[in-house]
Structure formats: structure tokens, C-alpha cells
């Protein structure tokens, strides 16, 4: 088994590839890597722009997007989720570039109220699991606007 972190399934905020994402969330900013050469957003984060090899800078985006799709998870596939089901996990397409889709939670709305392509806005909330006591990570979640 390759997963040895005792805080799994919290994100590994020390993984250099995604550290700025979670550091930004902790400050209340949604940051996405952007190419210094062509200006395109590059998601998921990687070492360099796949189009032109340009360097990437983590850039603040508006936090506005649309609800691309979602699932109402009813079975806990990992023990950490046993006391969370049912919950809504979603893909949100960002307004700046809809090809940038974030896996996220849509909160403060009943699942039956969700509508395809509805506008959503980011909020920053602590993510906690009872299986990882005493630890939390601030992450971007979304609400309907």
C-alpha cells in the first residue's frame, strides 16, 4: 500500500506540487497555476506548461464557476467518510477557464436543489475527518450563488 500518511485522507499540504494551493486556501485565496509564457491556466499542477514549457505561477482567480457535475455519495468507500455520507462531491468549472475543474464539496444546499451549470462561488472551510482527530486543513468548497 503506497499510502502511509497517518493524516490520510486529508491532503498532504507538504507535497510541493500542491503546497501553494492549500497555503492560498488558508489565506482565503483560490490559486491556480498559470503559464508565464502563454498565460494559460495549467491544471492539475505540474512542473511546467505542457504547451510551451513555460514556468508556472500560482495566480489568484475569482472563485466563481459553474456546477459541471456532481454525485451524491451514499456509500463510504473509505472508513474516514463513514460519518459523512451522504454528501455531495462535485466538479466545478472555473469561470476563468472552464477546462479547469476542481473536485470539491458543494455545501449549504440540499442535493435535490442542485442544478446543472448553476453558478457557484468559492468559500474556504476546514476539512476534518473523525478518523484523523485534532487535524484539519482549510480547503476550497463551493456554494450556489
Amino acid at each position: 500500500m503506497a499510502i502511509k500518511r497517518d493524516d490520510f485522507p486529508l491532503p498532504d499540504v507538504d507535497d510541493p506540487l500542491t503546497t501553494p494551493f492549500f497555503a492560498g486556501a488558508a489565506r482565503g485565496e483560490l490559486l491556480i497555476p498559470r503559464c508565464e509564457t502563454c498565460g494559460e491556466y495549467v491544471w492539475y499542477p505540474q512542473e511546467a506548461c505542457p504547451r510551451d514549457g513555460g514556468g508556472l505561477t500560482w495566480s489568484a482567480v475569482s472563485g466563481r464557476g459553474t456546477l459541471f457535475t456532481w454525485a451524491v455519495v451514499r456509500r463510504a468507500f473509505l472508513p474516514a467518510f463513514a460519518d459523512r455520507v451522504p454528501f455531495v462531491t462535485a466538479l466545478v468549472a472555473l469561470d476563468e477557464d472552464p477546462a479547469v475543474r476542481l473536485c470539491t464539496y458543494v455545501v449549504d444546499t440540499a442535493p435535490e436543489q442542485l442544478v446543472a451549470d448553476a453558478p457557484v462561488a468559492v468559500c474556504f472551510r476546514p476539512l476534518e475527518f473523525t478518523t484523523v482527530p485534532g487535524r484539519s486543513v482549510i480547503v476550497p468548497m463551493f456554494t450556489l450563488t
Partner: peptide, 21 residues
């Protein structure tokens, strides 16, 4: 690692969730 950090924490895991989406 990208799934561990950007998908699994958000409950976007495993395959039944991908394909439900």
C-alpha cells in the same frame, strides 16, 4: 499523489464516484 491531494480529500473517489459524475 495528485489524487490523494486534490480528489480523495473531497470525496471524489473511487471509480463509482468518477462514473457517477
Amino acid at each position: 499523489s495528485l489524487k490523494q491531494n486534490l480528489e480523495v480529500p473531497f470525496g471524489w473517489f473511487p471509480q463509482p464516484v468518477y462514473f457517477a459524475s
